[in-house]
Amino acid sequence: MLDDVKSVMQRVLKLGALLVLVITLVGSGVGFLVAGNPGVLAALAGGLLALLFTGLTALSVLIGSRFGLTGFMGAVLGGWVFKMVLFLVIFSLLSRAEWLTTQARPIVFFTIVAAVLGTLILDSLLIAKARLTPVVQSDK
C-alpha cells in the first residue's frame, strides 16, 4: 500500500508520543531513585518538553504539506523559530524554579536527550519504511 505525507506524519506523531511516554515513565522511576519526588517532577517536565519539541516539528510538516512549497517552508521554518523562542523562555523559567533541586536537574536533561534521540531513531525507521508515491503537487 502506498502512503502519503499525511499518513506518514500521523504515524510519526502517534508512535513518537507513545515512545516519549515510555521514556518519561522510565525517567520518573530513575528520577525517584536518584532525587526522590523532585526527580519524578523533573522527568515529567523533561518528557513534556521533549514531546512538545518533537511533536511541533512533525505537526508543522503535517500542516505545511497542505499548502504547497511556500506554505510548507513557512510552516516548518516559522514553527522552528517560534519553538526555539518558546523553549528559550521555558528553559529560562525552569532553570530558576525552586522545586527543581540540584540533584533533580540532570534528570531533566537526560530525559530530554533520551526522548529526543529515541524519537529520532523511530522517525528514521518509520520514514525509511514508508512507501511514498511521486505525485505532482499544486502550488495553489
Binding site: 502519503d4 505525507v5 506518514v8 506524519m9 510519526v12 519539541f53 518533537t54 516539528t57 512533525a58 510538516v61 505545511g64 504539506s65 512549497l69 510548507f72 516548518v76 522552528w80 519553538k83 526555539m84 523553549f87 528559550l88 528553559f91 531533566v108 536533561f109 530530554i112 536527550v113 529526543v116 534521540l117 524519537t119 529520532l120 522517525d123 528514521s124 520514514i127 514508508a130 511514498l132 508515491t133 511521486p134 505525485v135 503537487q137
Partner: peptide, 24 residues
C-alpha cells in the same frame, strides 16, 4: 515533493536535536 518533505523532516529533526541539547 512528498518524499523530499518527509526526508527534510528527518534532517530538520536531527539538527534541532542538537539545538535542543544546546538549550538544555
Amino acid at each position: 515533493a512528498g518524499r523530499l518533505q518527509v526526508t527534510m523532516f528527518i534532517g530538520v529533526a536531527l539538527i534541532e536535536a542538537l539545538a535542543l541539547i544546546g538549550l538544555a
